[in-house]
């Protein structure tokens, strides 16, 4: 009866949307070279997520597994999540110091739309790895997950010592 009045698109609430994404992540629907899931099953706000990107073939990233942290704040999906690489990577849109994906340099985050998902972000980053400016960039050697050692901290210790 009242259906004629609502002409705009249906806005899916945040939690429903995230539950849908969680299920897609668990079932492995979509692109087989990216994977994502929730960090803490007890977090009712479903904010912290982990993603992995398997490096695309015929690039320097081939055979590498890149781990990322995605943080979906309470305003997701109206606002994009914060995306940070845990594994060291040399990419034009990634801050070398912090591993943060810069929205100003990564169009999907810069021009965010509500319909975009975390899977879209990961596949878009994977596509970005294959672009001419990134496919041959010299990469730090593997085995340094969670080793973003702050050079400042190290040398400050030396000065104090």
């Amino acid at each position: 009866m009242g259906s004629e009045g609502s002409s705009g698109p249906v806005v899916v609430p945040r939690n429903f949307r995230l539950l849908e994404e969680l299920e897609r992540g668990e079932k492995g629907i979509g692109d087989g070279t990216v994977s994502y899931g929730m960090d803490d099953a007890d977090d009712i706000f479903m904010r912290s997520w982990t993603g992995t990107i398997i490096g695309p073939p015929n690039t320097v990233h081939e055979g590498r597994i890149y781990q990322l942290k995605l943080f979906c704040d309470t305003d997701y999906p109206d606002k994009p999540p914060t995306v940070r690489f845990q594994t060291r990577i040399n990419m034009t849109c990634v801050n070398q110091e912090t591993g943060l994906v810069e929205p100003s340099l990564f169009p999907m985050l810069g021009k965010w739309e509500r319909e975009h998902t975390m899977e879209d972000i990961l596949t878009s980053l994977k596509r970005e790895m294959s672009t001419p400016q990134n496919r041959r960039l010299y990469q730090p050697h593997e085995g340094n997950e969670d080793q973003r050692v702050e050079q400042k901290g190290v040398s400050l210790r030396c000065v104090i010592m």
Binding site: G25, E26, G28, T33, S35, Y36, G37, M38, T52, Q67
Partner: peptide
């Protein structure tokens, strides 16, 4: 699985793996 690299010494259940789920 779900963005995590599975470690050999952990169990599948500890990662929350359930039937019909996909592991890359």
């Amino acid at each position: 699985y779900k963005g995590r690299i599975l470690k050999d010494e952990q169990t599948l259940a500890s990662y929350g793996v359930e039937t019909d789920h996909t592991i890359h």
